[in-house]
Computed example of a mutant assay.
Amino acid sequence: MTSRLYIDVHIVQTVPPANLNRDDQGNPKEAVYGGVRRSRVSSQAWKRATRIHFDAQAPEQDRATRTKRITAELAERIARNTGLDKAPATRIAATLLEQLGLSAGKKVGETAYLLFYGNAQLDTVADLVTDRATELAALDDKALSETLKAIPVAEKFTTGHPMGVALFGRMVANIPALNVDASVQVAHALSTHETQLEFDYFTAVDDENEKEETGAGMIGTIGFNSATLYRYAALGLEQLTANLGGDTGAALDAVGSFVDSFARSAPTGYQNSFAHRTRPSLVAVVVRQDQPVNLVSAFEEPLPTEAGVAAASARRLAEEHTTACRMWGDTPLYSAASHTFTPGDLRTKDTTEALTQAFGEPVAFPQLISGLRARLATSMEDPA
């Protein structure tokens, strides 16, 4: 039995003029916190960016996908395995998936819900009918349905979860048996300071009509802002291990891959217009045994928008962590940080000292992940 361990991931990251995650008006999402308007990036946006980055590092068979086109994906596998034409393969796939009870979507061949599943899980379902495909294709609809009822399709989607599903979970509103409780929680990223919405007025010139007309071929505006963001995620190791069928080695691998992808990923909204990709100034991990702790309260009083916002944000975060530990009388099982601030720089000397007091001596990011894994492995071997 895995002991109850929670991994908090705290990130301070500065983003230049950008529109990472737009609202229904096409402008960057915002939120009022501490009495002022902040830049906001929704948890859904950063979770998807993390998941895409996470899957890109995994072998094809270990990846997961979320789609309404599961019937077409299964039919493609059946056709590839058996040589059947598309139509009979699709008929078999649709009948197999009837067992899941997924409602039909508005478009032909689509389900009403996005289903998050592993490639290996769908491969396993396709393998169930590979040896009988020609025989099954010859049956009428009633006989095909009766024959395929005996095949344990639902079981293949409730076991053998890939790391992505084990981390981010799966919810199908009207089919609780398919639900997987997420082991990861991601907060909405918030700027540590007040932000102002700005607009980029742009024009586009028609290259083939430049001599005849002097005006623009197109005119428009894009909303943007720039911000230093506080990003936070929490991971429950006990839930993650359970989702992976008790495989502690896979759980430890998933923790490292998640921290890496959460730190390195970014939503892609308007990325061609703003080239907004940056890396964090600070990544801190804290392992706790009681509960996850979001440190956004460090920024309830917004930082003044002056030079050195990133350093001031990191210092505030470190001080909040130290103060909270002292107030509640608890000591985290493990703390570590990787950051860009140096004690030799007088502008960041106070920040470096605060970070060291809170999280220990800084380490390079790869060592942050390897050290986290080693500490978790020790705790899992000896929960006491």
Score class of each variant (00 low, 15 high):
residue 220 G to T: 08
residue 242 A to M: 06
residue 240 L to K: 05
residue 307 A to R: 15
residue 217 G to R: 02
residue 338 S to M: 04
residue 259 V to M: 13
residue 233 A to G: 00
residue 233 A to N: 02
residue 338 S to A: 14
residue 223 G to A: 12
residue 241 T to Q: 11
residue 345 D to A: 10
residue 305 T to V: 10
residue 225 N to W: 00
residue 249 G to F: 12
residue 218 M to R: 15
residue 330 D to G: 11
residue 266 A to Y: 05
residue 234 A to W: 07
residue 237 L to F: 11
residue 341 F to V: 00
residue 268 T to D: 00
residue 318 A to R: 01
residue 339 H to A: 04
residue 321 H to W: 09
residue 243 N to Y: 03
residue 232 Y to N: 06
residue 290 D to T: 12
residue 311 A to M: 05
residue 317 L to V: 01
residue 333 L to I: 03
residue 316 R to W: 09
residue 307 A to P: 02
residue 288 R to G: 11
residue 337 A to R: 02
residue 222 I to V: 11
residue 281 S to R: 03
residue 227 A to K: 10
residue 276 H to F: 13
residue 329 G to T: 01
residue 233 A to H: 01
residue 260 D to H: 14
residue 258 F to E: 02
residue 223 G to R: 02
residue 304 P to A: 14
residue 249 G to Q: 15
residue 314 A to W: 08
residue 259 V to N: 13
residue 327 M to G: 00
residue 311 A to N: 05
residue 339 H to N: 04
residue 300 E to D: 14
residue 340 T to F: 04
residue 229 L to D: 08
residue 331 T to V: 15
residue 239 Q to F: 04
residue 292 P to E: 06
residue 337 A to M: 03
residue 235 L to N: 09
residue 230 Y to D: 09
residue 229 L to R: 00
residue 246 G to T: 01
residue 330 D to A: 05
residue 247 D to N: 12
residue 257 S to C: 12
residue 252 L to V: 01
residue 310 A to I: 11
residue 297 S to R: 14
residue 215 G to C: 09
residue 249 G to E: 15
residue 275 A to V: 02
residue 255 V to L: 14
residue 246 G to K: 04
residue 218 M to A: 15
residue 224 F to W: 15
